[in-house]
Design a protein around this nucleic acid. Structure first.
Lengths: 161, 161
DNA sequence: GCGGAAGTACTCGGATACCCACTGTCCGAGTAGGGAGGG
DNA sequence: CCCTCCCTACTCGGACAGTGGGTATCCGAGTACTTCCGC
């Protein structure tokens, strides 16, 4: 069990896009350059965000992506699920039905107890991601990161729009 | 992100082993037959449990596996980590260090804020798994499952030791 | 000088190869139980 | 009849192939800007 690299890249891209002036766009090329990741592959991850309506895309020169919503309205779960999918991490294949002691008549109404625990754990994970918004980490960064780095990054963004 | 099938198999095997009379063993062959899964591959998963000292193995006729501890002392996390490993689900490759605005002097002491959130979510997942013990699901099964199924399964186990 | 249309350059989006880890399988090392033989 | 030794059969453990999803890449469809031409 392992999250894709794309998740990390996408999260960082969203943070960067949050610093973008309104109605401006940042291209995949610039996003990839800023984070030092392969442009073409990052593009595929951003497609997921676009399909999930988390970002807006525009073509042509000066085109690219920008956030479709405010950072206060985009949770980590939104981004993670846009890339990883909404499928549960645990897949119950109901192997209890292979129990040789089961007769035709015995009915198992409730879902498998083991699967229930695993699904609860999955929900605990998602619940935490759902509780953290993009704006939260941005506020944190503005406190923790050196001021000059934030300023230089902001100007870098402005030079690339 | 997706858990291996082996996790499901292993959890069910542990539950079955909990019903085993003390000092008796159940072979991989029987465990595989009971759950309808490939014997050879299940063996590989049980090796993980053995290396994590969750089960004891014995060779020869009448050999196999039995729990090394009481069901009250084996958490879901123990089993999941024995199969999936203790590695975090989120791998931070520190792409923030590729930021072109970073100078040689700027120091980033704290870990990446994004990674911290993802690690917290991972910990929430593990925390839930850590709070549920094998004995819990067994108690639940003894309430929910039909009595005759439990009895037949118990006799099945006794016939295979 | 101004408006419009064509051309161009740049963007996203989907379709296409490559590679590692999960899945599945096999065989060898080692041991516990059973049986035969001797006392 | 009982004890000991040997043999057999069964077990786990690690080493060996096959396949699907993640990783990386490329090219085509579409658009906004720019430039040029005509009025």
């Amino acid at each position: 069990m392992h999250l894709k690299n794309q998740v990390e890249w996408t999260l960082h891209c969203c943070v960067l896009l949050a610093f973008l002036p309104p109605d401006k766009y940042l291209s995949t090329k610039d996003l990839a350059e800023f984070h030092g990741v392969p442009k073409e592959y990052l593009s595929k991850a951003l497609q997921g965000l676009s399909q999930a309506s988390l970002v807006l895309a525009t073509l042509g020169p000066q085109g690219g992506y920008r956030l479709a919503k405010l950072p206060e309205d985009i949770s980590f779960l939104d981004i993670v699920e846009a890339v990883e999918g909404k499928m549960s991490t645990f897949n119950c294949s109901d192997i209890r039905l292979n129990n040789p002691c089961l007769t035709r008549r015995t009915k198992l109404t409730k879902p498998c107890g083991i699967a229930r625990v695993m699904w609860e754990a999955d929900e605990a994970w998602r619940s935490h991601l759902r509780s953290v918004y993009l704006s939260d980490v941005i506020s944190g960064m503005q406190v923790e990161l050196p001021a000059d780095l934030l300023e230089k990054s902001a100007t870098w963004i402005n030079n690339h729009t």
